[in-house]
Amino acid sequence: MVVAPLSNPQSLFRDVLALDDVKGLLFLAETGQVLYSKAQDKHLSRLEQEDWNAISKTLARVREVDFFYGDDRIYLRRTAHGYLLVWMGGMAPVDMVKLNCEVVIASLP
């Protein structure tokens, strides 16, 4: 199944990316197809190589996951279209990031 590209994704995710210490954002279809990607760091693109299809059954059991790595956090939010991943540093306002993600998800087609 080919997921339709997002219209104007830069505008869609601008507010999330503008928050302090948000290092990158990745929006993937369940199959792992990249729908949108933006990062200050080139390493984010490596996440696209994960086998997202293989993990989709487990991720279907939850709405969202926070992964903790020292000061860094990856927030993964499952949506009807796939997965929204936000990579944050220690200074990121996590609640604001999550709130803005909910606003974005609500406005997705």
Partner: peptide, 17 residues
């Protein structure tokens, strides 16, 4: 994912929903 991003070791995760 942690290895991909070259961040600190993975410590734990919290799940909701």
């Amino acid at each position: 994912l942690g290895k991909d991003l070259e961040v600190a070791p993975f410590e734990l995760c919290s799940l909701s929903g």
